[in-house]
Simulated scan of single mutants.
Amino acid sequence: MRGVPVTVSPRRLVALCGVFLLVTSCGWGRAGEGGDDRPPGAPSGVTAEAGSATSVHVMWNAVAAAEAKVSRYEVYRGTTKVKEVPGSEHMVDVTRLRPSTTYVFTVRARDADGRLGPPSREVRATTPAVAKADDDAPTRPSDLRGRAAGNRAVQLTWSASADDRGVVSYDVYQGGTKIHSVGGTQTAAVVTGLRPGTRYAFTVRARDAADNVSPAGATVRLTTAGGTDGRATAPTGLRVTSEREDGAYHLELSWVPPRVDGAVTEYQVHLDGRAATSLVYGGDAPRDRATYRFYVGREAGVTHRVRIRAMLPDGTWGGFSAERTVTTGARH
């Protein structure tokens, strides 16, 4: 058994599911491990945001590679399947919708043997109203800038476009392919799932409620790092304290989740250089500051090294946070 064992009774486990599911490094495995023939799990981190008066951009976190191999993802509007994409993709535009209408979406994963996993949690998006006779496209986004964020991600920023009735969304293109969309109030994005040491070209276009799309702004070319520097995708502001309760010591952790486009729903805690425990949020994952507490023993004066990393929306691990040192029983 690696790390520090964490024992959770079945009753306690059920109670935790509404917030997060606790998984020890030597406890429950993922679906698909050890010859398990169960279908893929439900995709996490699903979000939906209107791209125009007639379209919604749906994103989700890729099912981790340790689970059953995903062949494709299916996107449902209510109970109707409206889109299907390969397992390598985890975003899609649902089109031909009605203006001023609220829609409910879920996502399901299907493996190579055709087994369909359970639906994700439901997410809702409301399309805006469309103004009549709106034929004017927004102005092109200007001042596009970017930088490599480690070896698998880039950070992009740009200046807002102008539109006579308002920008609803910005579309991010890699070469000639649309790869992402953000809301009209956002002027930044983090693109993940890239290859190390690779040169990419990005542009951004603005879209209004009538689906008028601006010309592309200037192209920015970026090369991802060739090493394993994942600092831009690492949790920040990690704090660790030791707390005593009922004669035992626990470590209290808090941190700021990495800023990536998509929800971070899973973290792995390393204790003294080894994976000790993982946590998976079953509901809405925190975006400002996350907290976690786990048992480390009954002996005072034991010094531990702690760091944490996040599972990114593309199904890969981000970089480790800065390491913190804490001693059980020590005054804060």
Score class of each variant (00 low, 15 high):
282 G>C: 03
89 E>G: 06
163 D>Q: 07
204 V>L: 00
105 F>M: 08
111 D>R: 10
156 L>Q: 04
272 D>P: 04
142 S>P: 05
123 V>Y: 07
130 V>F: 10
93 D>K: 09
76 Y>C: 12
18 G>I: 01
26 C>V: 14
57 H>Q: 06
117 G>D: 03
96 R>V: 10
270 H>Q: 14
299 E>P: 00
121 R>K: 10
58 V>N: 11
314 D>L: 05
100 S>W: 12
150 G>N: 10
165 R>K: 14
253 L>G: 00
8 V>Y: 11
177 T>D: 14
147 R>A: 13
121 R>L: 13
35 G>T: 04
137 A>N: 04
299 E>F: 11
46 V>M: 02
4 V>S: 09
142 S>L: 05
27 G>M: 02
103 Y>H: 11
83 K>R: 15
139 T>M: 01
308 I>V: 14
206 A>P: 09
13 L>W: 06
325 T>Y: 07
321 S>R: 02
74 E>N: 01
55 S>E: 12
142 S>H: 04
54 T>L: 00
21 L>C: 04
151 N>H: 15
29 G>N: 14
215 P>H: 05
143 D>L: 06
78 G>M: 05
286 P>Q: 09
173 Y>D: 12
207 R>M: 01
2 R>Q: 15
120 S>E: 08
298 R>V: 12
188 A>G: 10
94 V>S: 03
12 R>C: 07
19 V>S: 13
148 A>H: 01
282 G>Y: 05
246 D>F: 00
152 R>T: 02
313 P>T: 11
64 A>Y: 00
59 M>K: 15
153 A>S: 13
241 T>D: 10
73 Y>K: 10
52 S>D: 14
205 R>E: 08
203 T>Y: 13
160 A>S: 06
13 L>T: 09
190 V>P: 05
41 G>E: 05
152 R>S: 02
249 Y>R: 11
136 D>T: 15
236 T>G: 14
103 Y>D: 06
213 V>A: 09
154 V>W: 00
85 V>C: 03
204 V>N: 06
278 S>E: 13
162 A>K: 12
330 A>S: 08
143 D>W: 03
231 R>S: 15
295 Y>L: 12
88 S>K: 09
153 A>I: 00
92 V>R: 12
236 T>R: 15
4 V>A: 09
226 G>K: 06
55 S>D: 01
307 R>L: 09
149 A>K: 03
137 A>M: 07
260 V>M: 02
326 V>P: 11
202 F>H: 08
66 A>D: 13
332 H>K: 15
80 T>F: 02
319 G>E: 03
149 A>T: 03
300 A>V: 06
85 V>R: 02
170 Y>K: 11
116 L>G: 01
227 G>C: 11
100 S>L: 14
185 T>W: 07
154 V>H: 08
235 P>R: 11
231 R>M: 02
80 T>A: 14
191 V>K: 10
230 G>P: 00
154 V>C: 02
280 V>S: 03
260 V>L: 03
219 T>S: 01
145 R>H: 03
113 D>Q: 12
165 R>S: 04
195 R>T: 07
301 G>A: 12
123 V>S: 06
164 D>M: 02
269 V>A: 12
225 A>M: 02
313 P>R: 09
114 G>C: 11
212 N>D: 09
54 T>S: 01
296 V>C: 08
